[in-house]
Design a protein around this nucleic acid. Structure first.
Lengths: 137, 137
DNA sequence: TTGAGGATTACGAAATTCGAAATTCGTCTT
DNA sequence: AAGACGAATTTCGAATTTCGTAATCCTCAA
């Protein structure tokens, strides 16, 4: 992680679709170097993923899920991560086992997801918090 | 915003570098349609920007914060959002009032953030969950 | 039925990405 | 100083993707 990496990262944060060729021009190096650097940043996990920031007028919520003992939490998390409208699935420590962060069209859709979770036989309970406001750190 | 848009968005959220051609194959339409749809989503502001999610540290956690009644929760959230290593600050419904998602270098750093939160005079209590594993929906 | 308007598709051209080989650079050893 | 070695960088042609635009398809209304 040197200054060149940081320069590249700061360009990608602003617009992740900036072509390698343009990044190379702007930071004064070659396309290949930018490509190698970005590949390494992804491998090292510094870049978690390329994504889109969306501004839906949607309802966000956290669904805290408790599963039965003897349940493969990771496997359940995998299945939930495939559902529509799910942003993140976290296995967590504490009272509950899984936290699902959802971004749904309306409260009905949130409700649908809660129902869907409660219908999983491994799930013994859920607690939902609506996210009333989000700030990005 | 129909189902096709939502399908495209869900693919881009997972990997914003997925080529239009591949998205088209996966959702069963043509490259041009995907391109038009994405352009419109950007114009309409549904897609705010293409970006990279970076990971500075290794330990993620949720700190659930309870504040005193009569406290301006929004104002406290603002202040917390400025702290280093804070990913999100959510005002939520439920038992606690604020959830802080942090991404810190190590557990000591997480502990520092918890301490920092408890030292705010508006804060009456915190509950922390370590995020043991994250999946992206 | 016909026409208008919007969305989708088709397709060649331009731009970008990719793979792999060649080159440069820094450092170590003799 | 010369040589050797590995890592990083550069180069370049081929493959892939994006882009511009024109043609086509749909749907609705007159």
């Amino acid at each position: 992680m040197d200054d060149l990496d940081r320069e590249i990262l700061s360009i990608l944060r602003r617009d992740a679709r900036t072509p390698y060729t343009e990044i190379a021009d702007r930071v004064g190096t070659s396309e290949g170097t930018v490509r190698n650097r970005v590949e390494r940043l992804v491998e090292d996990g510094v870049i978690e993923r390329f994504t889109v920031a969306t501004r839906t007028g949607n309802v966000k919520a956290m669904i805290e899920v408790s599963v039965d003992v003897n349940v493969d939490t990771a496997e359940v998390s995998d299945r939930i991560a495939d559902w529509q409208e799910v942003d993140f699935v976290w296995q967590v420590s504490g009272e509950e086992d899984i936290v699902v962060v959802v971004d749904a069209a309306d409260t009905d859709a949130v409700n649908g997801l809660i129902t869907q979770a409660r219908e999983l036989e491994e799930v013994v309970g859920t607690k939902t918090r609506l996210i009333l406001n989000e700030r990005v750190g």
